[in-house]
């Protein structure tokens, strides 16, 4: 396959960015999208040009590092996958592919296609945990948890923190990310204990960091590589509001 790539290039956070156009040739349809970028970068280096910076790591869809906005879609034109799981067979020979970084005020560009997502860490630091120290905990089987609850908790816990929800949301809202953590822990007796405090602290931090207000478009759910449902956002709203009304 031969392809034309329009890629956002930006030297650093302060520099002004712009699109550059490149061509790649002889790409196998079985190649992954990131391998295609590897090939481009190898070519650019040989031409004495700077390679395109992009975040990636595990390349099997679980670390949440890869974060490209491809042809107008977070993680590209396939459902429930990360960029690294996207394969070139989803494109046609001769296609023009536009590749952009995540766009959100809370995710500043570091270089080219790399953005900073430390805002997510900060939200979780505000309360995305169960306050137990190492040691001194009860036996794992001392509290039975109904299987449906454990399953629903796991559904939400599947979040990989990639930020596609924020990237695709027209409001730049991080509600699905926050909801996934709040909901996952609220569904378990271990997490229920401090559910109210957690919901309040995480929402407050999310707001403080400049994420937008959720307007229930559901775009986050449509682009989430792990298919996390906005029903978890409803639970976050419930947890938050009931906590506030109890105050």
């Amino acid at each position: 396959m031969n392809l034309t790539l329009k890629i956002w290039r930006q030297k650093n956070a302060k520099a002004k960015g712009a699109f550059e156009t490149y061509n790649v040739e002889g790409i196998s349809p079985d190649t992954s999208f990131l391998e295609m970028l590897d090939i481009l970068n190898n070519k650019l280096i040989h031409e004495g040009k700077e390679p395109v910076a992009f975040d990636h790591d595990c390349r099997e869809g679980i670390c949440g590092m890869c974060s490209l906005y491809i042809n107008g879609k977070a993680h590209g034109p396939d459902s429930e996958i990360t960029t690294c799981q996207l394969h070139m067979r989803k494109f046609k020979d001769g296609d023009t592919i536009t590749i952009e970084p995540w766009r959100s005020a809370a995710f500043p560009v570091v270089r080219d296609l790399v953005v900073e997502r430390q805002a997510f860490d900060k939200i979780l630091q505000a309360g995305g945990f169960v306050s137990v120290n190492t040691g001194g905990v009860p036996d794992a089987n001392s509290i039975p948890i109904p299987k449906p609850d454990a399953d629903e908790s796991m559904d939400a816990a599947a979040c990989i923190g990639c930020g596609a929800c924020v990237a695709t949301c027209k409001n730049g809202s991080a509600m699905l990310f926050v909801a996934a953590r709040v909901s996952s822990l609220a569904k378990l007796p271990q997490g229920k204990v401090e559910a109210a405090r957690r919901a309040k602290a995480m929402v407050a931090k999310m707001d403080e960091l400049g994420f937008g207000n959720c307007t229930n478009t559901g775009a986050c759910q449509a682009e989430c590589p792990k298919g996390i449902s906005i029903a978890h956002i409803a639970r976050l709203n419930r947890e938050f509001l009931s906590a506030k009304f109890k105050d």
Partner: peptide
């Protein structure tokens, strides 16, 4: 207005509708 600000100053050059989003 808040949401526009949260979206950041640079917008996507290409944007496609999300499946299943009204």
């Amino acid at each position: 207005l808040q949401n526009r600000k949260a979206r950041g100053s640079i917008r996507y050059a290409v944007s496609k509708p999300n499946e299943g989003v009204a």
